[in-house]
């Protein structure tokens, strides 16, 4: 029922703007799209309030440069970098292990990430036509999960 209305609105809009027909079949931003956004906003804000009330942000002892605590964890989204640094203990030729352990998960990883649209020249957006890209994506995700796990177990 809602959909029929929407197609009509889409055509109305095509008439009011240019002579060229707009071929997009969709919902107008207001009110349809905005309404969905408001629903999502309520869920997100509700979740934040619930988490903040049940699990308030903590505060440990004041910083003491002469007392190293254990274990030291960074924010969870940096754990995989620490994990990889601990995991990689092999020198490659003249390059020391530590340089690789630092460079791969930071410089090389972000460099590759930023270059994704220029590396992947396959025009298809179908999952089944992009076996290599999808495979690489899954390998990288599993790698990040593994090194995150590795950093927690071997702190």
């Amino acid at each position: 029922m809602a959909l029929i209305e929407v197609e009509k609105e889409g055509k109305d809009m095509a008439g009011t703007q240019e002579k060229q027909p707009v071929r997009v079949r969709g919902f107008p931003f207001y009110p349809h799209f905005l309404l969905r956004e408001v629903v999502v906003m309520c869920i997100v804000i509700g979740s934040i309030l619930m988490l903040s009330s049940l699990f308030p942000a903590g505060l440990l002892k004041p910083a003491d440069p002469f007392d190293t605590p254990s274990p030291i964890f960074p924010e969870w989204y940096y754990l995989y970098v620490f994990g990889f640094l601990k995991f990689w203990t092999f020198d490659v030729g003249p390059i020391p292990a530590k340089i690789i352990g630092v460079t791969l998960p930071m410089v090389v990883w972000y460099g590759l990430l930023i270059m994704v649209p220029f590396i992947d020249r396959n025009p298809s957006t179908e999952l089944k036509d992009r076996k290599f890209a999808v495979g690489m994506g899954i390998v990288v995700l599993l790698g990040i999960l593994y090194f995150t796990y590795y950093s927690i177990v071997n702190h």
Binding site: P69, I72, P74
Partner: peptide, 20 residues
């Protein structure tokens, strides 16, 4: 500026500092 803040930053800046 609690213990975790100080030492995690110490390690984090140390790692960033060892980028070639």
């Amino acid at each position: 500026w609690d213990q975790l803040a100080f030492w995690a930053t110490k390690i984090g800046t140390g790692i960033a500092g060892s980028i070639p």
